[in-house]
Design a binder for these strands. Sequence first.
DNA 1: TAAACATATTGATGAACATCTATATTATCG
DNA 2: CGATAATATAGATGTTCATCAATATGTTTA
Lengths: 103, 103
Amino acid sequence: MKLATEDFDRISKALADPQRRAILQKLAMTGKLNCSDVGAFFDVSQPTVSHHLKELATAHVVEKEKQGQFCFYHVNNEVLSAYVSELQRRLGLNAVLATPHVR
Amino acid sequence: MKLATEDFDRISKALADPQRRAILQKLAMTGKLNCSDVGAFFDVSQPTVSHHLKELATAHVVEKEKQGQFCFYHVNNEVLSAYVSELQRRLGLNAVLATPHVR
DNA sequence: TAAACATATTGATGAACATCTATATTATCG
DNA sequence: CGATAATATAGATGTTCATCAATATGTTTA
């Protein structure tokens, strides 16, 4: 999967904040959570959680699923993998594994 | 190689800025550059380049080598690899490849 | 030693941002 | 319908930060 430059930039920024990384990690571990559940894990206000989730969603590293009054979020592994790959590519960390063959 | 939490945080922040990523990428491509050479590639002032290189060095993603009046910088691949691994671990991107065996 | 050069530091400025309180919006339930 | 609950938005505030001009520090060379 190919990431637009704009998305790559946005993801880098999204991952820069420790609180946002913690939220993302929690989502990665639990699979799927709603806003309130996420908030319960951390000592920040509800609007702050909402804001962070929005940032993560805008960067497409999480996906939002509205179910009635609730709003579930889950990690987008495809985007995260693409981000890590692109990061490795840019940093020259994948020279040896350039085109891995599966036989 | 194990990254201290503090280092992981600092690297995430260091990678958040596009200008710093561009500098790092340039260093990854060319291997080794001094301050002036780095500056020549971008349209920013000398103090700004110096500042960014310092941030990258503080995060240990580049290493500094003073040679007389010049100052050479090169990428620290070990730290960058460790960062990417830790990132993958936290984001749950390595479930399948947990302990890759080389036979 | 004086001038020229490479890099670092200082201090200032404007923008971005994390966070909060207050409030709005939308959905459920009695 | 009215109350309660979940999430979002608006606006404010303090902090962090990217950047620059000016200057300092350290190094080479004429």
